[in-house]
């Protein structure tokens, strides 16, 4: 009787002991740096998104809606995108997604911009898994967006016939992006235009093509601000430099395409 009860007890306990590590190791997110307190930057938040604005936000400019990387806290992208609000006067929305996995909410970006009636043009982008998700959203809701940017990501949907401008930004020391998948899935994007510097983006716009730009010395995690990511390469530039380079090429991309 005692042995039977003990065996039953151990079965129950083993269930718990197996369950806990599985959930723990597959669902831990990367914490962001502490919330920035940049003068002039207004950070507001609700259950669906974090918004970055300033007193000078120009709603005639295309807003940016961004999907975070998988298992990365969305606040980790505030620093990387605050210059779009502070310098470019654009509204920036960083999506908050279930379990910090954008792939669980593939229409989050298109749904949250429906509530933002002040801005009627939106560029969607994402990092890593968030970039993949952004491509899915563009595929499913092609009329919702006027531009697409993906950071260390690729499209698993066929966007070859998409007419919106698209830019794909990678980093040379990124050891997490599966380069074979990246190369194979580039066929899902419009014709490539590889550039070495932002100035190479044609002034007349890039509709119907995909701009490819690689940041020398950057890595996977430094597109956001959440420290080192397990398995990533060693960057030879700082996260500030990588984020500045990303800002510069995206700014040029949006200017050339009149977004």
């Amino acid at each position: 009787m005692i042995i039977d009860h003990y065996v039953l007890h151990m079965k129950k306990l083993s269930l718990l002991i197996f369950i806990l590590p599985i959930f723990y190791f597959t669902s831990c997110s990367y914490l962001p740096e502490e919330l920035p307190t940049t003068p002039g930057l207004v950070i507001e938040e609700n259950a669906d998104y974090i918004s970055l604005t300033t007193a000078n936000t120009d709603n005639r400019k295309a807003g940016i809606v961004f999907n975070p990387g998988g298992l990365v806290d969305p606040h980790a992208y505030i620093t990387a995108f605050e210059d779009f609000a502070l310098i470019e006067n654009r509204m920036v929305l960083i999506a908050k997604v279930t379990s910090n996995l954008a792939i669980l909410n593939t229409s989050k970006a298109s749904s949250i911009i429906n509530d933002m009636t002040d801005v009627n043009r939106w560029v969607v982008g994402g990092h890593s898994l968030g970039g993949v998700t952004s491509c899915i959203d563009v595929f499913n809701n092609p009329d919702s967006f006027v531009g697409l940017f993906i950071l260390a990501a690729y499209s698993i949907e066929d966007l070859r016939d998409s007419s919106i401008p698209i830019i794909s930004i990678t980093a040379s020391e990124d050891a997490l992006l599966d380069m074979e998948e990246f190369s194979n899935n580039n066929d899902n994007l419009p014709d490539p235009l590889r550039i070495n510097a932002p100035i190479d983006i044609p002034e007349e716009g890039t509709s119907g093509m995909t701009v490819f730009y690689q940041i020398e010395g950057g890595n996977h995690a430094q597109f956001g601000s959440y420290g080192n990511q397990e398995g990533d390469g060693s960057a030879t530039i700082s996260s500030i430099e990588q984020q500045e380079l990303t800002f510069n090429v995206l700014k040029k991309f949006m200017d050339c395409n009149e977004l």
Partner: peptide
């Protein structure tokens, strides 16, 4: 959630392990 329960006097006591998604991500 997985929980166990046992009677206690005129009531019952329970203890369980819960895994949930919430605003800040996931928690146990």
């Amino acid at each position: 959630e997985l929980l166990y329960e046992r009677p206690y006097k005129n009531a019952a006591l329970r203890a369980g392990l819960e895994y949930r998604s919430i605003d800040w991500g996931n928690q146990v």
